[in-house]
Design a protein around this nucleic acid. Structure first.
Lengths: 203, 203
DNA sequence: TTTTCCAAGTAAACGCTGTTTACTTGGAGA
DNA sequence: TCTCCAAGTAAACAGCGTTTACTTGGAAAA
């Protein structure tokens, strides 16, 4: 991008301002209640102006999910690349759960909501998703080299592991764990995940 | 209910007609596109009429989810109540996946969508949910008696198992498995689930 | 038999939503 | 100085869930 050109920079800043405001409102209120009009009012412009920077509401939320995916990968990159592979797999799962409980709105946007899905050929979130999957698969591969999880295809193992953490998180985010009233959901999720990792370890 | 009283029966039939039409449109088009106006037009009444039978759109979809939960429990009741407990646990998981792939719209309604959630004291879907959880917990308990899955609380084990199948299914329904283009999602889910059950068996 | 009354149904409106058409305006470049 | 265009806007459009105010057909009361 042309950061020297003051015209282009102003345009970029306005875009960021819209995205930042939309993101803030979305985290507070959710998708439906984050209206174009509310965003416009918040930044002090007319609703029409937002359409000068984004094709439509879905496009705006797709661009927002891009930022979410970048933050998500940062969580993953805190996991060490050497050491006991099963410890690393465990750590990866914990980071996944941390991201989801610290940024439930973003998680919803990335993995549950229908709106931000992109149907272009060069989908950037798709690329980042593949990168994250690559990190998981590399660790699973290391586990197999260390003698764990023998006899199954890495791709299928990776999906099973992803599904487990996604299942825990999405039940929580979409409020299907309210039937356990005696305990906060987050520690309950963590306990269930610990059992899962124990199981992988003995596998 | 007073099925003899023709007045009450007519009222009941109208209610069923609305529910059936709404359900049909919902399965075809999803929640957002199933508008009150579209349902009204389909049954040949004015939109206002629907509000004589249901409090609002959320109430209509909550009542619809009740039917979905009843169908869901029917799937579960096909699982034998005796025999090898781990075979039964496997069968239960397969039934869960069958329900979700045969009725993805209903699954969405029951476990993903925010709208049909009820906030009353006597929530009937809550009761049915607890019943389903009871079936799962009974099988997990039998597994422990047979020497499997030792050393963990049944409640936590049940959540871990639920999360695994829910994770697989909800990634599929919300179209997050499109990154595997070379294979249909359903067999992929079944393979991942098989690995999970193998793992439980060796645990 | 006549009158009353109410449940069932409706047309039209209200206040939202995302989005578009048609317009204004300030400032850079010719 | 004049032209032109990018940036921004007011107002409208179509569609949404929902409500107000109205009509009407038929059972029950007189």
């Amino acid at each position: 991008m042309d950061l020297e050109n003051p015209k282009a920079r102003e345009k970029m800043e306005m875009r960021e301002k819209i995205l930042h405001t939309a993101s803030q409102l979305f985290v507070e209120r959710g998708f439906e209640k984050t209206t174009i009009r509310a965003i416009a009012e918040e930044i002090g412009y007319s609703p029409r102006t937002i359409y000068l920077y984004f094709k439509d509401k879905d496009d705006l939320f797709y661009q927002m999910s891009l930022d979410a995916f970048k933050l998500f990968v940062q969580y993953f990159q805190e996991v060490p690349t050497d050491g006991d592979p099963l410890d690393r797999l465990c750590k990866l799962g914990q980071k996944y759960l941390s991201f989801a409980s610290e940024h439930p709105g973003y998680y919803d946007l990335m993995f549950i909501l229908r709106s931000p899905m992109n149907h272009d050929e060069n989908d950037e979130t798709f690329e980042i998703g593949m990168k994250s999957k690559g990190i998981l698969k590399a660790i699973v591969s290391d586990c197999q080299k260390a003698g764990y999880l023998q006899g199954y295809e890495i791709e299928h193992l990776a999906l099973m592991i992803w599904a487990e953490v996604h299942g825990l998180v999405s039940l929580h985010i979409r409020e299907r764990l309210k039937m356990y009233p005696d305990m906060d959901s987050v520690p309950r999720i963590e306990q269930a995940h610990e059992i899962f990792v124990d199981m992988l370890r003995k596998f």
